[in-house]
Design a protein around this nucleic acid. Structure first.
Lengths: 157, 157
DNA sequence: TATTGTTATACTCTATAACTATA
DNA sequence: TATAGTTATAGAGTATAACAATA
């Protein structure tokens, strides 16, 4: 019965479909690689932004990652509760919260990055270094085509 | 203030991060492109599998796409209700359901594929044809690294 | 009047477990 | 005993709207 490895039809050559499957495979392996750290994809991305931009505020962090303001709250609460970041009111704008990594936050980032290195090497093990950096470049070029995330409070003109 | 385009830190060179962002951009544009058709990503993929394998059964369809049995039910119900597919009990195995596109299903597929062509051209408009097919190839090679989906009923050995 | 962060809430997607009917 | 499909349900993740405090 040929139906057990069925044809993909139109999906076969769609970049969107391949992107979805690749993303799904990456996600699953990422989650497995992070087991025991208490980190998930989005919180790790948030930590990475804060680590690279100490004192950045909550809104700018979310905007950098396409995360809506409303969804940042629980995310930041979680990281504060785990004592991986510190949150303080910005002296120059008392509405805003500035974020910085704690020492524990730096440690968990270091541990995560080590695991992620293994994870990416595993997922990309059949690629030459040049293929890998080409993939990175091609993917980066797609991002710019997205309609900027937070159109939230704007009229839908 | 340099914080308005903050550094990405470790994310910068992670394929997983770029994959996520590219995927997210693709998803948003896909949804916009499908507006009015009533089609979403997964239902379209299901239609594509059925179109390419007339009479395939529900389980095999799901397995081809990494969709769990339990989640196939509502998905197939939706496509049947929209009269895009027909569902019949398999004469050779009365537990199984065989699926085929209706004429309306073929029409909606044709319409969707036309829109998707525009969508993919838009998302990949800054790529040369060779870059585009290279991207497709690199993405396809990632999929194989995924731990096969349905480990559902098996012991976790 | 606009912006930062907050709360409450809803919707989609995916996951698990327990069931039935057939094999 | 195993497999195809089903039901019910829970958990992420992400979306919208309305609000308070500050600018």
């Amino acid at each position: 019965m040929s139906s057990e490895q069925p044809h993909l039809g139109a999906l076969e050559s769609l970049v969107g479909y391949r992107l979805r499957r690749a993303w799904s495979a990456f996600s699953a392996d990422f989650a497995a690689a992070m087991e025991g750290t208490g980190l998930r994809q989005v919180p790790l991305a948030v930590l990475s932004i804060i680590a690279a931009n100490p004192g950045i505020n909550q809104g700018a962090t979310g905007r950098a990652l396409g995360i809506k303001r409303a969804n940042m709250v629980a995310l930041i609460n979680e990281l504060v509760e785990k004592q991986w970041i510190e949150r303080a009111t910005d002296a120059n704008d008392r509405r805003a919260l500035t974020l910085t990594l704690t020492t524990a936050g730096e440690a968990v980032m270091a541990e995560a990055l080590q695991r992620i290195e293994g994870h990416e090497n595993r997922m990309l093990s059949d690629m030459q270094p040049e293929e890998r950096s080409l993939l990175l470049d091609l993917l980066s070029r797609i991002e710019r085509r997205s309609p900027s995330a937070e159109a939230e409070d704007l009229g839908n003109g």
